[in-house]
């Protein structure tokens, strides 16, 4: 009994929107990054699911690369948060608001 593809898509959409919810409401920059990670992983779920349904390994390899890139992005993100803390004294994203009108 196979799992219908719609449920995998639904799972992926749910994880993505949970991550999006976190991006929109979280004030702490580290939680912001975590939410971004969630969104990336939602995309990975999608890739792997369709790799199964199309009997093609490309999706899974691509998901591996995606994970690698997510890791790279987190590394740079942590560096940016460090510099943000140095300049503004707090990692609250709603405090760093100098590039405004």
């Amino acid at each position: 009994m196979a799992v219908l593809p719609e449920y995998y898509l639904l799972l992926s959409a749910a994880v993505f929107c949970i991550g999006l919810f976190g991006v929109l409401t979280r004030r702490n920059a580290l939680f912001f990054l975590m939410s971004v990670e969630l969104m990336l992983n939602a995309g990975n779920i999608n890739l792997v699911a369709f790799s199964l349904y199309y009997s093609n390994l490309t999706g899974q390899v691509f998901a591996l690369f995606g994970m690698a890139l997510a890791a790279a992005e987190v590394a740079v993100g942590i560096g940016i948060i460090l510099v943000l803390y140095r300049n503004f004294g707090d990692i609250d994203v709603t405090e760093a608001v100098t590039m405004r009108w």
Binding site: L24, V93, T94, V97, T98, R100, W101
Partner: peptide, 12 residues
């Protein structure tokens, strides 16, 4: 122009 508040989450 007040839309341009620099808060990242607002942009998102």
């Amino acid at each position: 122009r007040r839309i341009q508040s620099a808060v990242v989450t607002n942009n998102a």
